[in-house]
Design a protein around this nucleic acid. Structure first.
Lengths: 157, 157
DNA sequence: TGGATATTTATGGGATAGCATGGGTTTTTA
DNA sequence: TAAAAACCCATGCTATCCCATAAATATCCA
Protein backbone atom coordinates (compact mmCIF):
# COMPACT_ATOMS: atom_id res chain seq x y z
CA UNK A 1 0.00 0.00 0.00
CA UNK A 2 1.25 3.45 -0.91
CA UNK A 3 2.88 5.58 1.74
CA UNK A 4 2.62 9.31 1.31
CA UNK A 5 3.57 11.58 4.15
CA UNK A 6 2.55 15.16 4.25
CA UNK A 7 4.36 17.71 6.37
CA UNK A 8 8.01 17.78 7.28
CA UNK A 9 10.29 14.81 7.23
CA UNK A 10 10.04 12.58 10.29
CA UNK A 11 12.79 10.06 10.80
CA UNK A 12 11.81 6.86 12.62
CA UNK A 13 13.35 3.51 13.56
CA UNK A 14 16.89 2.22 13.64
CA UNK A 15 18.55 0.62 10.64
CA UNK A 16 21.79 -1.30 10.32
CA UNK A 17 23.57 -0.88 6.99
CA UNK A 18 26.98 -1.87 5.72
CA UNK A 19 29.77 0.53 4.92
CA UNK A 20 31.93 -0.67 2.04
CA UNK A 21 35.63 0.02 1.60
CA UNK A 22 34.85 3.13 -0.44
CA UNK A 23 32.96 4.55 2.52
CA UNK A 24 29.59 4.15 0.85
CA UNK A 25 26.42 3.49 2.88
CA UNK A 26 22.82 3.14 1.80
CA UNK A 27 20.61 5.70 3.47
CA UNK A 28 17.54 3.73 4.58
CA UNK A 29 14.80 3.90 1.97
CA UNK A 30 12.37 5.20 4.59
CA UNK A 31 14.63 8.12 5.32
CA UNK A 32 15.00 8.84 1.63
CA UNK A 33 11.29 8.85 1.03
CA UNK A 34 10.90 11.21 3.97
CA UNK A 35 13.22 13.52 2.04
CA UNK A 36 11.51 13.02 -1.31
CA UNK A 37 10.07 16.52 -1.43
CA UNK A 38 13.39 18.22 -0.66
CA UNK A 39 15.15 20.30 -3.28
CA UNK A 40 18.54 18.91 -2.39
CA UNK A 41 18.51 15.13 -2.73
CA UNK A 42 20.91 14.20 0.02
CA UNK A 43 21.68 14.94 3.65
CA UNK A 44 23.79 17.24 5.78
CA UNK A 45 26.06 15.56 8.33
CA UNK A 46 28.30 16.80 11.13
CA UNK A 47 29.93 15.75 14.37
CA UNK A 48 27.75 15.35 17.43
CA UNK A 49 28.77 17.55 20.33
CA UNK A 50 27.63 15.02 22.90
CA UNK A 51 28.46 11.63 21.49
CA UNK A 52 30.92 9.80 19.30
CA UNK A 53 28.32 9.88 16.56
CA UNK A 54 27.22 11.89 13.54
CA UNK A 55 24.18 14.11 13.27
CA UNK A 56 22.14 14.08 10.08
CA UNK A 57 19.70 16.70 8.81
CA UNK A 58 17.76 17.59 5.75
CA UNK A 59 18.91 20.69 3.94
CA UNK A 60 15.72 22.57 4.73
CA UNK A 61 15.99 21.78 8.43
CA UNK A 62 19.51 23.16 8.28
CA UNK A 63 18.03 26.40 7.01
CA UNK A 64 15.61 26.41 9.90
CA UNK A 65 18.47 26.09 12.35
CA UNK A 66 20.09 29.02 10.65
CA UNK A 67 17.01 31.07 11.35
CA UNK A 68 17.00 30.03 14.98
CA UNK A 69 20.60 31.14 15.27
CA UNK A 70 19.63 34.50 13.89
CA UNK A 71 17.86 35.17 17.12
CA UNK A 72 21.22 35.51 18.79
CA UNK A 73 23.27 38.63 18.49
CA UNK A 74 25.07 38.33 15.18
CA UNK A 75 28.55 38.88 16.63
CA UNK A 76 28.12 37.34 20.05
CA UNK A 77 30.49 34.61 21.16
CA UNK A 78 27.64 32.19 21.53
CA UNK A 79 26.41 32.73 18.01
CA UNK A 80 29.93 32.39 16.77
CA UNK A 81 30.58 29.18 18.65
CA UNK A 82 27.33 27.58 17.60
CA UNK A 83 27.68 28.58 14.00
CA UNK A 84 31.24 27.30 13.89
CA UNK A 85 30.40 24.01 15.53
CA UNK A 86 27.35 23.37 13.41
CA UNK A 87 27.83 24.99 10.03
CA UNK A 88 31.60 25.16 9.79
CA UNK A 89 31.87 21.48 10.51
CA UNK A 90 29.10 20.09 8.39
CA UNK A 91 29.28 18.40 5.02
CA UNK A 92 26.69 18.11 2.31
CA UNK A 93 26.37 14.54 1.07
CA UNK A 94 24.30 13.91 -2.08
CA UNK A 95 22.68 10.56 -2.79
CA UNK A 96 24.20 8.56 -5.60
CA UNK A 97 21.95 6.82 -8.12
CA UNK A 98 21.27 4.02 -5.65
CA UNK A 99 20.48 6.12 -2.59
CA UNK A 100 23.90 5.93 -0.98
CA UNK A 101 26.15 8.59 0.50
CA UNK A 102 29.91 8.55 0.95
CA UNK A 103 31.02 9.20 4.51
CA UNK A 104 34.20 11.32 4.65
CA UNK A 105 37.07 9.54 6.34
CA UNK A 106 37.44 12.12 9.13
CA UNK A 107 33.82 11.70 10.11
CA UNK A 108 34.06 7.92 10.08
CA UNK A 109 37.10 8.14 12.33
CA UNK A 110 35.34 10.51 14.66
CA UNK A 111 32.37 8.18 15.07
CA UNK A 112 34.55 5.05 14.94
CA UNK A 113 32.53 3.66 12.09
CA UNK A 114 34.07 0.87 10.08
CA UNK A 115 32.19 -1.98 8.47
CA UNK A 116 28.63 -1.06 9.33
CA UNK A 117 26.58 1.77 10.79
CA UNK A 118 23.31 2.36 12.58
CA UNK A 119 20.98 5.00 11.22
CA UNK A 120 18.83 6.19 14.12
CA UNK A 121 15.71 8.23 13.43
CA UNK A 122 15.11 10.97 16.01
CA UNK A 123 12.21 12.87 14.52
CA UNK A 124 13.41 15.84 12.56
CA UNK A 125 17.00 14.68 12.64
CA UNK A 126 18.85 11.40 12.73
CA UNK A 127 22.17 10.06 13.94
CA UNK A 128 24.76 7.67 12.53
CA UNK A 129 26.53 5.38 15.00
CA UNK A 130 29.02 2.62 15.36
CA UNK A 131 26.63 -0.28 16.12
CA UNK A 132 28.47 -1.41 19.19
CA UNK A 133 28.62 2.07 20.66
CA UNK A 134 24.99 2.65 19.89
CA UNK A 135 23.93 -0.47 21.74
CA UNK A 136 25.13 1.11 24.98
CA UNK A 137 23.73 4.48 24.07
CA UNK A 138 20.31 2.97 23.44
CA UNK A 139 20.27 1.21 26.76
CA UNK A 140 21.24 4.43 28.48
CA UNK A 141 18.46 6.33 26.79
CA UNK A 142 15.91 3.67 27.70
CA UNK A 143 16.89 3.61 31.34
CA UNK A 144 16.96 7.39 31.49
CA UNK A 145 13.42 7.54 30.20
CA UNK A 146 12.29 4.73 32.46
CA UNK A 147 14.12 5.57 35.67
CA UNK A 148 13.73 9.30 35.55
CA UNK A 149 10.19 8.84 34.42
CA UNK A 150 10.74 11.23 31.58
CA UNK A 151 7.55 11.85 29.73
CA UNK A 152 6.54 13.87 26.78
CA UNK A 153 4.64 16.90 28.01
CA UNK A 154 0.93 16.86 27.43
CA UNK A 155 -0.06 18.92 24.47
CA UNK A 156 -2.47 21.79 24.76
CA UNK A 157 -5.76 21.33 22.93
CA UNK B 1 -23.01 -1.51 7.94
CA UNK B 2 -19.91 0.50 7.36
CA UNK B 3 -19.02 2.94 10.10
CA UNK B 4 -17.02 6.05 9.27
CA UNK B 5 -15.57 7.97 12.15
CA UNK B 6 -14.81 11.63 12.20
CA UNK B 7 -12.34 13.05 14.71
CA UNK B 8 -9.43 11.19 16.21
CA UNK B 9 -8.99 7.46 16.18
CA UNK B 10 -10.40 5.60 19.15
CA UNK B 11 -9.36 2.01 19.74
CA UNK B 12 -11.69 -0.31 21.67
CA UNK B 13 -12.00 -4.00 22.59
CA UNK B 14 -9.60 -6.90 22.45
CA UNK B 15 -9.00 -9.05 19.38
CA UNK B 16 -7.06 -12.25 18.89
CA UNK B 17 -5.38 -12.69 15.50
CA UNK B 18 -2.87 -15.12 14.07
CA UNK B 19 0.71 -14.29 13.22
CA UNK B 20 2.00 -16.27 10.22
CA UNK B 21 5.57 -17.36 9.64
CA UNK B 22 6.31 -14.18 7.72
CA UNK B 23 5.35 -12.17 10.80
CA UNK B 24 2.13 -10.89 9.25
CA UNK B 25 -0.92 -10.08 11.36
CA UNK B 26 -4.28 -8.66 10.42
CA UNK B 27 -4.97 -5.41 12.20
CA UNK B 28 -8.58 -5.69 13.42
CA UNK B 29 -10.97 -4.14 10.93
CA UNK B 30 -12.37 -1.93 13.67
CA UNK B 31 -8.96 -0.45 14.32
CA UNK B 32 -8.41 0.10 10.63
CA UNK B 33 -11.66 1.93 10.15
CA UNK B 34 -10.74 4.11 13.11
CA UNK B 35 -7.69 5.08 11.05
CA UNK B 36 -9.55 5.52 7.79
CA UNK B 37 -9.13 9.28 7.67
CA UNK B 38 -5.37 9.16 8.27
CA UNK B 39 -2.96 10.16 5.54
CA UNK B 40 -0.66 7.29 6.31
CA UNK B 41 -2.52 4.00 6.08
CA UNK B 42 -0.77 1.99 8.75
CA UNK B 43 0.42 2.23 12.32
CA UNK B 44 3.49 3.13 14.33
CA UNK B 45 4.66 0.54 16.86
CA UNK B 46 7.30 0.48 19.58
CA UNK B 47 8.31 -1.31 22.75
CA UNK B 48 6.33 -0.57 25.86
CA UNK B 49 8.36 0.89 28.69
CA UNK B 50 6.32 -0.90 31.33
CA UNK B 51 5.28 -4.25 29.90
CA UNK B 52 6.51 -7.02 27.64
CA UNK B 53 4.17 -5.67 25.00
CA UNK B 54 4.07 -3.36 22.01
CA UNK B 55 2.45 0.06 21.83
CA UNK B 56 0.61 1.14 18.68
CA UNK B 57 -0.29 4.63 17.50
CA UNK B 58 -1.53 6.44 14.46
CA UNK B 59 1.02 8.33 12.41
CA UNK B 60 -0.59 11.67 13.18
CA UNK B 61 -0.30 11.00 16.89
CA UNK B 62 3.39 10.40 16.32
CA UNK B 63 3.66 13.75 14.58
CA UNK B 64 1.98 15.31 17.57
CA UNK B 65 4.63 13.82 19.82
CA UNK B 66 7.25 15.19 17.47
CA UNK B 67 5.89 18.67 17.85
CA UNK B 68 5.90 18.42 21.60
CA UNK B 69 9.54 17.36 21.50
CA UNK B 70 10.32 20.45 19.45
CA UNK B 71 9.81 22.51 22.56
CA UNK B 72 13.09 21.17 23.93
CA UNK B 73 16.51 22.38 22.95
CA UNK B 74 17.53 20.45 19.86
CA UNK B 75 20.79 19.18 21.34
CA UNK B 76 19.84 18.82 24.99
CA UNK B 77 20.32 15.52 26.79
CA UNK B 78 16.64 15.34 27.55
CA UNK B 79 15.62 15.75 23.94
CA UNK B 80 18.23 13.23 22.92
CA UNK B 81 17.14 10.59 25.40
CA UNK B 82 13.48 10.94 24.64
CA UNK B 83 13.97 10.98 20.89
CA UNK B 84 16.25 7.94 21.01
CA UNK B 85 13.86 5.96 23.18
CA UNK B 86 10.71 7.01 21.35
CA UNK B 87 11.57 7.63 17.70
CA UNK B 88 14.62 5.42 17.46
CA UNK B 89 12.72 2.52 18.92
CA UNK B 90 9.63 2.84 16.80
CA UNK B 91 8.76 1.39 13.44
CA UNK B 92 6.34 2.55 10.79
CA UNK B 93 4.23 -0.35 9.58
CA UNK B 94 2.01 0.19 6.52
CA UNK B 95 -1.06 -1.96 5.90
CA UNK B 96 -0.78 -4.35 3.00
CA UNK B 97 -3.68 -4.68 0.58
CA UNK B 98 -5.47 -6.92 3.05
CA UNK B 99 -5.06 -4.79 6.16
CA UNK B 100 -2.11 -6.62 7.62
CA UNK B 101 1.17 -5.40 9.05
CA UNK B 102 4.49 -7.22 9.35
CA UNK B 103 5.91 -7.29 12.86
CA UNK B 104 9.72 -6.99 12.87
CA UNK B 105 11.45 -9.93 14.47
CA UNK B 106 13.05 -7.92 17.27
CA UNK B 107 9.70 -6.58 18.36
CA UNK B 108 8.15 -10.03 18.30
CA UNK B 109 10.99 -11.30 20.44
CA UNK B 110 10.61 -8.44 22.86
CA UNK B 111 6.91 -9.08 23.35
CA UNK B 112 7.34 -12.87 23.12
CA UNK B 113 4.81 -13.06 20.33
CA UNK B 114 4.81 -16.16 18.20
CA UNK B 115 1.76 -17.74 16.63
CA UNK B 116 -0.93 -15.29 17.64
CA UNK B 117 -1.37 -11.88 19.23
CA UNK B 118 -3.92 -9.87 21.17
CA UNK B 119 -4.78 -6.40 19.93
CA UNK B 120 -5.98 -4.38 22.91
CA UNK B 121 -7.70 -1.05 22.36
CA UNK B 122 -6.81 1.60 24.94
CA UNK B 123 -8.38 4.72 23.49
CA UNK B 124 -5.90 6.82 21.56
CA UNK B 125 -3.40 3.98 21.50
CA UNK B 126 -3.50 0.21 21.50
CA UNK B 127 -1.23 -2.59 22.59
CA UNK B 128 -0.15 -5.89 21.08
CA UNK B 129 0.40 -8.79 23.47
CA UNK B 130 1.32 -12.39 23.69
CA UNK B 131 -2.14 -13.84 24.51
CA UNK B 132 -0.91 -15.81 27.49
CA UNK B 133 0.92 -12.84 28.98
CA UNK B 134 -2.05 -10.62 28.40
CA UNK B 135 -4.35 -12.95 30.28
CA UNK B 136 -2.32 -12.35 33.43
CA UNK B 137 -2.04 -8.66 32.72
CA UNK B 138 -5.80 -8.33 32.37
CA UNK B 139 -6.43 -10.13 35.64
CA UNK B 140 -3.90 -7.92 37.36
CA UNK B 141 -5.51 -4.80 35.98
CA UNK B 142 -8.94 -5.93 37.11
CA UNK B 143 -7.88 -6.79 40.63
CA UNK B 144 -5.95 -3.55 40.87
CA UNK B 145 -9.03 -1.60 39.95
CA UNK B 146 -11.11 -3.63 42.36
CA UNK B 147 -8.71 -3.34 45.29
CA UNK B 148 -8.01 0.31 44.76
CA UNK B 149 -11.68 0.97 44.31
CA UNK B 150 -12.38 -0.62 47.71
CA UNK B 151 -9.63 1.27 49.46
CA UNK B 152 -10.21 4.71 48.04
CA UNK B 153 -11.60 6.77 50.91
CA UNK B 154 -15.12 7.99 50.58
CA UNK B 155 -15.71 11.67 50.19
CA UNK B 156 -12.92 13.93 51.22
CA UNK B 157 -12.76 17.31 49.58
C1' DT C 1 -39.33 -13.67 8.69
C1' DG C 2 -36.34 -16.76 7.04
C1' DG C 3 -33.41 -18.43 3.92
C1' DA C 4 -30.44 -17.57 0.00
C1' DT C 5 -26.94 -14.60 -1.87
C1' DA C 6 -23.47 -11.08 -1.62
C1' DT C 7 -19.58 -8.59 1.18
C1' DT C 8 -16.28 -8.15 4.34
C1' DT C 9 -12.48 -10.41 7.15
C1' DA C 10 -8.97 -13.26 8.31
C1' DT C 11 -5.55 -16.24 6.65
C1' DG C 12 -2.28 -18.82 3.55
C1' DG C 13 0.83 -19.23 -0.41
C1' DG C 14 3.23 -17.89 -4.52
C1' DA C 15 4.89 -14.21 -7.73
C1' DT C 16 7.23 -9.81 -8.12
C1' DA C 17 9.51 -5.54 -7.40
C1' DG C 18 12.36 -2.80 -4.48
C1' DC C 19 16.30 -2.42 -1.72
C1' DA C 20 20.96 -3.08 -0.02
C1' DT C 21 25.31 -4.36 -1.57
C1' DG C 22 29.46 -5.29 -4.42
C1' DG C 23 32.23 -4.61 -8.37
C1' DG C 24 33.62 -2.35 -12.38
C1' DT C 25 34.12 1.76 -15.67
C1' DT C 26 34.29 6.39 -16.85
C1' DT C 27 35.08 11.17 -15.49
C1' DT C 28 37.04 14.64 -12.68
C1' DT C 29 40.73 16.90 -10.13
C1' DA C 30 44.97 17.36 -7.87
C1' DT D 1 49.01 10.74 -14.87
C1' DA D 2 47.68 8.78 -10.67
C1' DA D 3 44.11 8.99 -7.20
C1' DA D 4 39.69 9.83 -6.11
C1' DA D 5 35.06 10.70 -7.00
C1' DA D 6 30.87 10.00 -9.64
C1' DC D 7 28.34 6.77 -12.45
C1' DC D 8 26.57 2.34 -14.10
C1' DC D 9 25.26 -2.27 -13.84
C1' DA D 10 24.65 -7.14 -11.67
C1' DT D 11 22.91 -9.89 -7.88
C1' DG D 12 20.66 -11.93 -3.98
C1' DC D 13 17.52 -11.19 -0.48
C1' DT D 14 13.38 -9.77 1.55
C1' DA D 15 9.36 -7.05 1.76
C1' DT D 16 5.45 -6.10 -0.90
C1' DC D 17 1.87 -7.26 -3.87
C1' DC D 18 -1.63 -10.31 -5.69
C1' DC D 19 -4.64 -14.03 -5.68
C1' DA D 20 -7.29 -18.06 -3.50
C1' DT D 21 -9.96 -19.87 0.25
C1' DA D 22 -12.91 -20.02 4.25
C1' DA D 23 -15.46 -18.15 7.84
C1' DA D 24 -18.24 -14.59 9.52
C1' DT D 25 -21.28 -10.88 8.66
C1' DA D 26 -24.42 -8.20 6.15
C1' DT D 27 -28.00 -7.62 2.53
C1' DC D 28 -31.83 -8.78 -0.17
C1' DC D 29 -36.07 -10.66 -1.58
C1' DA D 30 -39.81 -13.85 -1.70
Amino acid sequence: MKVTNSGMALFLSTYLNKVDKKGRVSVPAQFRSALASENFQGVVVFRSNHHAALEGFSWSFMEEIGQRLDHFDLFSDLQDDLATAVFGDSVQLPFDGDGRIVLPKELMDFAQIEGSANFVGLGKKFQIWNPKTFKKRREDARTQVKVQGLTIPKGGA
